[in-house]
Amino acid sequence: MLILTCPYCGIRCDETELAPGGEAHLKRFGPGSTDEAFEAYLFERENPMGVHFERWRHAYGCGRWFLAARDTVTLEVFGTYKAQMPEPPEEIVAAIRARRPEWEGRA
């Protein structure tokens, strides 16, 4: 039963107030893209043991989508941040590096 802090309304949300949305920072491929790129966009997902970035919606609250960086094994949360980020923001990356020096960055 995770607790994630919604970066929009500041509530420490109970997992039951949230809806999961899969991996974060996917880049959309549309018409004109190659089959390979489009397939990767649709189906290829990271499944790491360790640092992971994911989408959550504060469904029973402010209705906002936000992103979370957490460890899939220990469930440590490195931070949550707003959804309009193509990449994890610097402070999140710094928080991860402080806790996981061996982390090699996003694949």
């Binding site: 309304c9 039951t16 029973y60 609250g61 402010c62």
Partner: peptide, 10 residues
């Protein structure tokens, strides 16, 4: 104001 879950509804 707290938006949340009341049993099974928003």
């Amino acid at each position: 104001i707290r938006r949340t879950r009341l049993a099974q509804v928003p």
